[in-house]
Each structure stands twice: as structure tokens, then as C-alpha cells.
Write a protein that binds this DNA or RNA. Structure first.
Length: 219
DNA sequence: CGCGTTTGACCCGCGC
DNA sequence: GCGCGGGTCAAACGCG
């Protein structure tokens, strides 16, 4: 399964992080979004291009169709990679990112104090955003490689929360994955930070195409 | 052997 | 100060 900058246009509906951080507790002050989940198959051409292309990752096997809460006109690739692929959507992206940074600033600080006792370096807040997918699989293939570094049972939830880190050596993006106990078919994924490198699978897909275009442009 | 997962221990913030 | 809960570490383990 591969990301496409065009097919991915239209991004994921942002969930209020207070709800996210409340471990889906019922006392969350923000009511759930009124509209139903949009039925957008996650591995459909609309969201992912060239699902049959070869891949080295074992996680690239086709996922069952997912329903994803999305907002139109947010560029998902730009949001993840920090690159402005679709400039017209930038204001919305920035607002979304800043919103998440604002909401997640406290946790960001909390989560980065390990091994730094005595020298409290106030870390710049990192953008966070979350979305829900309706899937049997906890892990959706977003094109990046992740390494799991922890799993915790969280209060008020029947399902543990898993912690992942981007395996790219210079990248410090993390994500949390948790299945809702209220609706076990829904997986909540929270991203923290912005990738400072291109999506590997996207580049794998585009590189041969770009080479071919370069070759053809010589004529 | 390299890479990813598992899991218990540990750290830290927060509320009481 | 203490206990709780969330987040992270790191050794052990599994797998290709």
C-alpha cells in the first residue's frame, strides 16, 4: 500500500485531543462528532495509490477496508512530512498543527524528561494530531516505518495503548495507537511531531517515475 | 545477525 | 510525602 500526494488529499478528521487524552472516558467534556464516520476504504485508490506495488515491508499486506474520519482539504502528506505539497491547503494545515501543538504541549514536556534529571530543557512543543479509523487492524500502513517501544494498559479502557517511534534515525516522530473500548471497531491513532524525511514508500513509488520522466525529458 | 516486539522496571507529574 | 497513572527505557526474546 502506498501513499500518494494526490489521492491522500483530504485528510483525517481532527479529534479534540482532550477527548483523546481522556482515554475515551465518558466524562470527556467534548461530545463526539455529530457526523458519522465516512465510509472511505483506507486502501482504496482514493486514499492510497498502487496498492499492488511490491514492498519490502511485511506490514504492507492489504488491510481490510477502513472507515476514516476525515476533513476535506487537509493535505495528509504535508501534515506528516512537513512539506508543503499542496500549498493551497497550507493555512488549514498550519491551523490544524498549531491547534494540536497547543493541546499537546503539556504532554510533550512530560514525555521528554527522561534521562535529563536536573537539566530541565524546556522543549519546543510538537504538533500532535489524532484521528479515528474503523478497522480490525490496530496498525494502519501510513508509509512510514515504526518501532514499538512500549505498551501500557490505560485506565478506563479495556485495550492497551501502544507506543511507536519512527525508525528513521534523525526522525523523532511518535505515535500512539489505542482501540476504543466504547466501540471496539475504532482505532485511535495519535501522531506527535512532524517527519523530517520523506515517506519511504512514497519515494520508492515516485523514484522510478521521476527517473523515467528525466529520461523522457531529454528528447 | 539485524531488526522489531514484549514486558517489567523506572521516572515524572499531579492530586490529595 | 505518598500513591496513581501515563510515558519511556532496556534487556530478553522472536523471527526472517
Amino acid at each position: 500500500m502506498f501513499l500518494s500526494p494526490y489521492s491522500l488529499r483530504g485528510a483525517l478528521r481532527l479529534i479534540n485531543l482532550q477527548t483523546m487524552d481522556g482515554q475515551e472516558s465518558n466524562q470527556a467534556p467534548v461530545p463526539p462528532p455529530p457526523q458519522p464516520l465516512l465510509s472511505v476504504p483506507f486502501n482504496s485508490p482514493f486514499l492510497f495509490a498502487a496498492p499492488s506495488l511490491p514492498s519490502s515491508s511485511s506490514s504492507s499486506s492489504l488491510h481490510p477496508p477502513l472507515e476514516t474520519q476525515i476533513l476535506p482539504d487537509i493535505d495528509w502528506v504535508s501534515l506528516l512530512s512537513g512539506q508543503g505539497v499542496l500549498g493551497e491547503n497550507k493555512p488549514m494545515i498550519e491551523s490544524a498543527v498549531s491547534l494540536m501543538a497547543e493541546n499537546g504541549a503539556d504532554q510533550d514536556e512530560k514525555g521528554n524528561k527522561d534521562k535529563r534529571k536536573g537539566s530541565r530543557i524546556k522543549k519546543a512543543s510538537r504538533p500532535r494530531f489524532a484521528f479515528q479509523t474503523r478497522s480490525a487492524d490496530d496498525i494502519l500502513d501510513d508509509g512510514y516505518r515504526w518501532r514499538k517501544y512500549g505498551q501500557k494498559a490505560v485506565k478506563n479502557s479495556n485495550y492497551p495503548r501502544s507506543y511507536y517511534r519512527c525508525t528513521h534515525h534523525t526522525c523523532n516522530v511518535k505515535k500512539q495507537v489505542q482501540r476504543l473500548s466504547k466501540d471496539t471497531s475504532i482505532v485511535v491513532t495519535t501522531y506527535e511531531g512532524i517527519h523530517n524525511h520523506p515517506c519511504e514508500k512514497l519515494m520508492e513509488t515516485l523514484t522510478p517515475l521521476l527517473k523515467q520522466m528525466q529520461f523522457l525529458s531529454r528528447f
